[in-house]
Each structure stands twice: as C-alpha cells, then as structure tokens.
C-alpha cells in the first residue's frame, strides 16, 4: 500500500462524496425548509439520468443533454409538486413518506412503459472515455476528473448562493424558523418553489453525470437515496454546509472501508475470518459513522435549527 494508492483512493472517495452531495443538497433543503420528506427525489435523479442518456444518444452533445435533462426534470418536479407534494406540506411525515413513495412506484412503472425494463446505454462523452496520466504511476479516468470539477464548482456556487445572495438569505431564514420568516414578510411559498426546483436541478445534474459511469436503470434512484439520506442526517437536516461536509465524510469513509479494511484485516486475522469480516465491516462503515456522529451530536454536524 503505497502513497499513490492512498492518494488515488482519496480522489475516489472525494468523487463519490461530491456526487452524493449533489443529491443530498436538494434533499436537505427541501426537508429543512419545507419540513417535507420527499422520497421522490430519487425518481428525479433517475429522470435526469434517463433523459440525459437518451438526448446524448440522439444528439451527440453531452453538454446539451445535461442541460435538457436539468430543464426537463425541473418541469417534472414542478408537476409533482403541483399534483402531490403541495398537498403534503401541512401533513405529518408518515403521510409524506407514503405519498412520495407512491410517486417512486409510479415513476418506475412510467419509465418501464416508456423505455422498457432493461437498463439503457449512457455513453461516456467521446473525449473523456480514456484515462489521464495524473502522475507518472497514476492513470485516472478523465471523466471522473470532470465529475470532481463539476461537483466542486456546484458546491462553491451553492455556498455563494446560500450565504451571499438575498435569495439565499431567505432560504436560510426559512430553514432556521419558518413561521418567524413568514411573520417577517418573507413569501415562503415562493421560496418553497425555488428550493424545490433547485433540488430537482441538482438531482438531475447528479443523474445525468452518473449515467456514463453507472447503470441507467429502473430503481437507480432508490439505490442512491439511502446513502443520500445518511448524508443529510449526519450533516444536520436543512444545512447545505452540513450536507457538503457529511457527503465528503461518507464518500471517504465508504471508499476507505472498501479499499483499506480488507487488506488490514488480512494482516492481523486468520484468512477465513478476515474474508468474512472485511466486506461486512466495509458495508456498514457509513452507518457506523452515522451512529457515531449522532451519539455525539444528535442533531447532526451543522443543524440548521440551532
């Protein structure tokens, strides 16, 4: 295990974490500000991935495909908000979870009806298929470097938006105390719509970017929703900063668990025990992290409602 291997795994963890962040940022804002648990967020991620893959295939332009996917997903999100979610703002979390879970089931069946049950192809943009020689000993996938860049840019953009614009101030006000913000004259309804659209755009972006390195298939939204939920719980619900830090933590811990734990266990334990224990421990690493954080800080690392 040399320095380059460790460095490469750090990059991997960072990349995975940033993708989780794109998904978790939208989820945490919606939950934090509207107090609404929107499980259909995973379906928006799936919609982004499918639309981007199909548009990319027929037009040949990846950038165009990502933009189309974002716009189309915002429209889908608006429809879902108007039809379902708007009626749920005043209901309890159980009703919200049930209703948005229903949306997931409908979305999965819709995708099956439109594109069929088989996973579809999402090609990597031709210029980015190969590896880049990052260091003499380290070739790294060009596409993953782009993901890292986009993830960091979006994180910076969100930071500026939330902390240094008027809209961001309203968002923060809504997140920390909704009724007080309403009393102060903030049109919370408008902020809600903005945040819901922003969350959809981020989910679509994550889906579109993950397509070329992952399976674009029915149920892809549910699979990534679980780590995204872990991220927002660790980060503190409603906090974009918390989601960022937690996403990177989860990405790094998960990757490190898979990369370093099995060889380390093999060095100290008998081989058969290490072979059973290693993958099991690596699989639960991020949940252990969540449990540890919640023990020390029950409201998460950066709770929005202090």
């Amino acid at each position: 295990m040399d320095a380059i291997f460790i460095f490469e795994q750090l990059l991997n963890g960072l990349g995975y974490g940033l993708m989780l962040f794109l998904l978790a940022a939208g989820l945490t804002l919606v939950f934090g500000i509207m107090d609404t648990m929107n499980l259909a967020h995973g379906s928006l991620y799936m919609a982004g991935a499918y639309i981007a893959a199909k548009v990319h295939e027929s037009s040949g332009s990846f950038l165009g495909a990502v933009l189309v996917a974002i716009v189309a997903t915002i429209l889908i999100a608006a429809l879902i908000e108007w039809l379902v979610v708007r009626r749920l703002y005043s209901r309890d979390h159980l009703a919200q979870v049930l209703a948005t879970f229903g949306v997931i089931l409908i979305a999965d069946d819709l995708v099956k009806a439109i594109w069929g049950p088989s996973p579809i192809m999402a090609p990597t943009p031709a210029a980015l298929t190969g590896p880049v020689q990052l260091l003499a000993e380290l070739p790294y996938p060009a596409y993953r470097l782009v993901l890292l860049g986009v993830g960091l840019a979006v994180a910076l953009g969100l930071y500026l938006l939330v902390n240094h614009t008027r809209m961001g101030m309203l968002v923060r006000a809504g997140a920390s105390n909704r009724s007080m913000a309403e009393f102060m004259g903030v049109r919370v309804g408008r902020v809600f719509s903005f945040v819901f659209a922003l969350g959809a755009a981020l989910a679509a972006l994550a889906g579109a970017l993950m397509g070329p390195i992952g399976a674009v298939q029915i149920g892809m939204g549910e699979a990534i929703l679980i780590p995204a939920l872990v991220v927002i719980v660790i980060g503190g619900i409603g906090s974009v900063r918390g989601a960022f830090v937690a996403a990177l933590l989860v990405g790094l811990v998960d990757t490190a668990g898979r990369a370093f734990l099995p060889p380390m266990l093999r060095a100290v334990l008998p081989p058969s025990l290490a072979a059973d224990l290693g993958p099991a421990l690596a699989g639960i690493a991020m949940y252990v992290l969540m449990a540890a954080v919640l023990t020390l800080k029950p409201a998460g690392l950066f709770p929005a409602r202090a």
Partner: peptide, 20 residues
C-alpha cells in the same frame, strides 16, 4: 478475492485495488 456490497454503485476503490 474481493466481495462488494450488493447493489453497489461506485467501484472505484475495487478498481484501484485491481490496478495495484
């Protein structure tokens, strides 16, 4: 001999192990 999580999405860590 690598065992991954069921339904795993990201395989970068395993691929780095294979490269090494």
């Amino acid at each position: 001999e690598i065992y991954t999580k069921v339904g795993q999405i990201d395989y970068a860590a395993e691929i780095a192990q294979i490269r090494a």
